[in-house]
Design a protein around this nucleic acid. Structure first.
Length: 151
DNA sequence: TAAATGACTGACT
DNA sequence: AAGTCAGCCATTT
C-alpha cells in the first residue's frame, strides 16, 4: 500500500471533509472534490473511500470514524463496487460484504435516509431531499427530479 | 515499464 | 431522455 506524502494529504483532506457531512444527509464524490479545491478529481475521492481502513485497524480515519456511507454519485445513486466490466463479477462484489452498496444502503436507512430501488435494481437517494451541498455553485440549474423521488 | 481499472463527472450524441 | 466519450490520476495488473 504505497502511499506517497501527497496522496496521504489528499486522503486525510477527503476524510475530514466527509466527516463534515451531517448525519441523515448525503453528498457526492464530486462535491467533496470541489470542497477541497480539486474539482477534477472525484474519482480520487472514490479511491480514498475504497482504501478506508476497517474500524479495528486502529487508524485515526476508519470505517467507524468516517461516514463513508454518506457519499454517493452525482445522480443520487449508490455506486457499485465493480471489479471488472464483467456483470457476473459485479454480483459477487455486490453481495453484502462490508462496504458493499447494499451495506451502504442499510446504514443510510438506519440514519433516516430513504433509499429507493428502481426497476433495474439500482439504489437511489433523493438529493433534493437529503443532499448536503454547502458550497453550492451557481452554474447548476435545478429543474425536475421527479424520477428518484419520494412519496 | 506500460497498460488497464475504477466507490466519478459533465459534455455531447 | 438515455447512452457514449473523454478527462482524471492513484492503484493494480
Amino acid at each position: 500500500m504505497p502511499r506517497s506524502e501527497e496522496a496521504e494529504w489528499w486522503a486525510n483532506a477527503v476524510y475530514e471533509a466527509i466527516q463534515e457531512i451531517p448525519r441523515g444527509k448525503v453528498t457526492s464524490y464530486g462535491h467533496i472534490a470541489r470542497l477541497l479545491g480539486e474539482p477534477q478529481r472525484p474519482r480520487q475521492v472514490g479511491v480514498c473511500l475504497k482504501v478506508l481502513p476497517p474500524a479495528e485497524s486502529g487508524a485515526h480515519f476508519n470505517n467507524d470514524t468516517v461516514p463513508w456511507q454518506r457519499v454517493i454519485n452525482s445522480k443520487g445513486m449508490i455506486s457499485h463496487r465493480t471489479r471488472a466490466n464483467i456483470p457476473a463479477l459485479v454480483a459477487d462484489v455486490e453481495s453484502s460484504g462490508p462496504g458493499s452498496a447494499q451495506r451502504q444502503a442499510d446504514v443510510l436507512q438506519s440514519e433516516g435516509v430513504e433509499v429507493t430501488t428502481d426497476s433495474m435494481g439500482e439504489m437511489y437517494v433523493s438529493l433534493a431531499q437529503y443532499g448536503w451541498f454547502p458550497s453550492h455553485l451557481p452554474s447548476e440549474q435545478d429543474e425536475d427530479e421527479s424520477e428518484n423521488s419520494e412519496v
